[in-house]
Amino acid sequence: MSGAILILGATSAIARGAAAAWAQRGHRLYLAGRDVESLRRDAADLAIRYGVAVHFGAFDAAAHDTHAAFLQRVTDEMGELEGVLLAFGYLGSQAKAAGDFREALAIINRNFVDAVSILNLCADQLEQRGRGFIAGIASVAGDRGRQSNYTYGAAKGAFALYLQGLRNRLFPAGVRVLTIKPGFVDTAMTWGMPGLFLVASPIDVGARIVTAVERGRDVIYVPWFWRYIMLIIRSIPERLFKRLKL
């Protein structure tokens, strides 16, 4: 089994880690994102290291009305898709988002609305085909609202709920849906951020995503111990939680 996989937001470091793991297993890839010159380099690198065919092309998550044509182009080039990884996202700044609605909207759109736009189309296609997978990167930040990043957390939480519903809908069709909830990952998004702990490498996180897809998992926390950290965080009563500086 080495079908074609579409990666949305393929310039992300986590996506790069997953792409390497898939390429190593012989999957053909389509790398999609805004920075086409970087994608060209990534595609060359994967093809040289792993000897697989890697395609790439422009994709802007925010340009919803281009999504149908984009997906058509991808399937024309690659044939039927085996699966889709959605990696794009935007952390933004909570401080800025509190006073500037455009920032809040960008965070909500990039992490939720844009994802719905493209995944609705992917879901239809995979459902018709009757197998395959959709994997989406949400976040542990979506498990509980905190003052430091609740706009991002709300958008990621909404995305996780959306994936949950999608999983339910696509189950009869034999299409698996994986929700990925990373903790801190050592990427451009977190570089230089104060207060990081237990930071995981994006290569490891990418490899975990690929094995989770293979095993048909529903929801994963990466690294695994975040499941327990979040269990504790979720179990703190709200009347206490609201007093914490988190």
Partner: peptide, 9 residues
């Protein structure tokens, strides 16, 4: 002061 670009650009 460390920066760590992810891309050539």
């Amino acid at each position: 002061e460390l920066v760590r670009p992810e891309r050539h650009a």
